[in-house]
Amino acid sequence: MSGAEFVPLSLTPLLIGIFAAIACALPGNFLVLRRQALIGDAISHVVLPGIVVAFLTTGVIATAPMMLGAAGAAVVAVILIEAIRRLGRIEPGAAMGVVFTAMFAAGVLLLEQSDTSGVHLDVEHALFGNLESLIWLDATGWSSLFDPAALAGLPPELPRIALALLGVALFIGFFWRPLKISTFDEGFAATQGIATGALGIALVIVSAVAAVAAFDAVGSIIVIAMFICPPAAARMMTNRLERQIGWSIFFATIAAILGYVLAGYGPLWLGFGNSVSAAGMIATVAGLILAVAAVFGPCRARIGAPQGG
């Protein structure tokens, strides 16, 4: 395929997909190890009411209020889960289930009640995203990458998700040692003077930021899949956290590229006319990677894992 076709139509969705996948997979490593994997699931459900409320209060589809609304809803959900868990003495899983389903239901109800027919805001869009539509119309070929006029026409989702990825990476790099220690041995971390509670909340907030930024571009399926599948697959490959993170980035990238290509061109190869959902395909490929790792990964078993892996 020539650059004239690839750059405007496929380069930006591909890059957005990769960045979103990595931005979610990075904090996902810690969430999986801390047994908080379902936080991603909860966050991606509660983002919907946040976005709807932001739309109803401002009346326009603008990015800044929606991101704020989504982040606010995520914070409200985390506080509610914690409050219900403590006040009602309910196990965390059930508390989470109560909060995110109720908030999602409220979001759907608000959406149905309000007049959103004139704007592009519906439940399906929130779930599936629309990766394929994030095209770069101003580009004419590879040379556009160096052309300021064409670069100005980049879809705004790309710099946004890149920024989120950078923020997530900086957070993890900066707090690497405390994060690692408190993930594996919270008690020891506390004796070393690490504020484990604050760090845990910070990790959830960073995950929420990554989820909201990715959600904006690619919908909530990828968010949940990428929080869990690449880190879980990476966990089967090694016993060292550094290598696990490396593997998870690798798996996330592979899933994003392969998923996008399969969704875009797979049906054509099979003789069908139209492409299928890229977000769904990326999640599917991530699941296949996890399945392969779970069957063949060198460190897949809970006991008897090879030494020094």
Partner: peptide
């Protein structure tokens, strides 16, 4: 749970 729900749901969307 998280991996199964997201992957199956994603495949369903496909």
């Amino acid at each position: 749970i998280g991996s199964v729900l997201s992957v199956f749901f994603g495949f369903g969307i496909v």
